[in-house]
Design a protein around this nucleic acid. Sequence first.
DNA 1: TAATTTAATGCAATTATGTCGCATTAGTGT
DNA 2: ACACTAATGCGACATAATTGCATTAAATTA
Lengths: 126, 126
Amino acid sequence: MKRRNTATKEAVLSVLNSSDKAMSQGAIEKKIGVNINRATIYRVLNRYCEDGVLHRIVADNGKQYFALCEECDKHRKPLHHFHFRCEKCETIECLPEPVHFSLSNAYVVEKVNCVLTGICKDCSKF
Amino acid sequence: MKRRNTATKEAVLSVLNSSDKAMSQGAIEKKIGVNINRATIYRVLNRYCEDGVLHRIVADNGKQYFALCEECDKHRKPLHHFHFRCEKCETIECLPEPVHFSLSNAYVVEKVNCVLTGICKDCSKF
DNA sequence: TAATTTAATGCAATTATGTCGCATTAGTGT
DNA sequence: ACACTAATGCGACATAATTGCATTAAATTA
């Protein structure tokens, strides 16, 4: 199933590119300017995850957030890194901190989802 | 606000005690035998979390799971430990593996939620 | 360039998880 | 036994995310 280039996909990617944080569907929809259906945004995001363009973070509020893999590569972040959810500014940030664990190889680990929650460095100033 | 002892609370605790895994509201409701309202189970679980009897894990499927803190203490699990969600048997397990991270104390960390997802040691045998 | 194929989209409906208000029930202490 | 109020059941609600289906529009081919 070959992907097609559409304005919608470009718009979503551009919003994520212009942010240094992970974003939820809602946040993307707010920032995107043009009118794009909610379901479509989700579909675009899911496809990007499948294709390895984005990674999905599920925070402890149960919501999904999406971040550019390329952005993390560029900043030399480890493949599996911690994420920080700030309860004040309601953002999710990819941290440079790597996730380490060692467990019996009887386990098959397919996904790693690590989120710290609290007040981020910008919000804790005040 | 002092807590009262009720059959419902005992039943919920007993179900969790009889399991070595973290459980969702749905799983608890299925296993509890007696009829207890969904909202009530959630309220009981939330109160236990407030009281430090249970800890809440939010998995990458967006669902909440609850595990006995005492059980983790007994097995000498670190305060912050990894959790494993098996996609085959649909359970969540508290792992003895500790979560380590170091980050600027400009961040205020209030919650730690780390979940690995895949196939657990029991299911990977087959 | 026109025709064909099918991926992508919009809309509405649906699913699922979790919470809340309110009336009622039932622990607990006096 | 009574008073106080925490706990419960019920229904409604909120939110996040997905799905079916008809339509639109990229990309490929003739």
